[in-house]
Amino acid sequence: MNKTYKHASESEVTLSQLMLPSHSNFNGKIHGGFILSVLDQIAFACASKHSENYCVTASVDRVDFLNPVEVGELLTLKSSVNYVGRTSMVVGVRVESENIQTGHKKHCNSSYFTMVAKNQDGEATEVPGLILKTENDIRRFIKNIKRRELRQQHDKTFNDFQLDLENHLQLLKNHNAKVELDKH
């Protein structure tokens, strides 16, 4: 089987949706859970388009809500495949909101979804490689290699974590916690 390659532009998906009162929380801002749901949908569409297979979300790397989204604003999500492995892809999604009366735009969120392609039997299946045409394509791909390396270091640190009560109690003195150990 010959290996296929695609450029990220072949799989890009853009979605715009007007934010309605039914999407808001008790504070009148658009509910973060609603935005997360739309993020997952667009990551699915982008990954499925690239892989030409059904895809599932394996992980989400950081979701920072930078600016609130207001009722009546136009929410626009832009997605692209930034990195591919053998069966997985990292889809970057940028979220902006726009006041449709003034045209003022805000960057609200950037998130990275790791998606895995599945075949008809539900097994992970190989995905096309990624053609890197620009410095920005290369930057995005390398950033994801670095993000993956950092995640592996993080996982190792916390999988191997051992509590050293004496030293860690000292560490807690600089944080907003009060220790009241039971004397059993």
Rank of each mutant, 00 (worst) to 15 (best):
P128M: 04
F158L: 11
V127Q: 01
L74V: 01
K183T: 13
Q17H: 04
L165I: 12
K78A: 03
E166W: 05
N99I: 13
G33W: 06
V91P: 09
H104L: 12
L150Y: 15
E135I: 08
H168W: 13
K3M: 12
S51E: 03
S22K: 14
E52I: 02
V81N: 05
H107M: 10
A124C: 09
V38Q: 15
S88R: 04
E12I: 15
L15Q: 08
L172D: 07
M115N: 00
K105N: 10
P21D: 00
I142S: 08
E149M: 05
V38M: 14
S16N: 04
P21H: 02
H50I: 02
F34T: 09
C108F: 01
D64K: 06
Q120S: 00
K3A: 12
E135T: 07
V81S: 04
K156N: 10
R62G: 04
S111Y: 10
D160T: 01
Y83N: 15
N27Q: 15
L36C: 02
D40Q: 00
H104E: 14
D40K: 00
N167P: 07
A58P: 09
S11E: 15
N136Q: 14
V127G: 00
Y112M: 04
N67M: 10
T157V: 13
H23W: 11
I142V: 13
R139G: 02
G85M: 01
Q41V: 08
A177F: 11
R148G: 04
K118T: 05
H7V: 07
L74T: 03
G103W: 10
V38E: 14
S59T: 08
T76A: 01
L74E: 00
V13F: 06
N2A: 11
K183N: 13
L15S: 05
L18M: 09
Q153Y: 02
H31T: 00
N82A: 12
G32L: 04
L36R: 01
P68V: 01
R147W: 12
L150V: 13
L66N: 10
R94Y: 11
R62W: 06
K106F: 05
G72T: 10
S9V: 08
Q170V: 08
V69G: 00
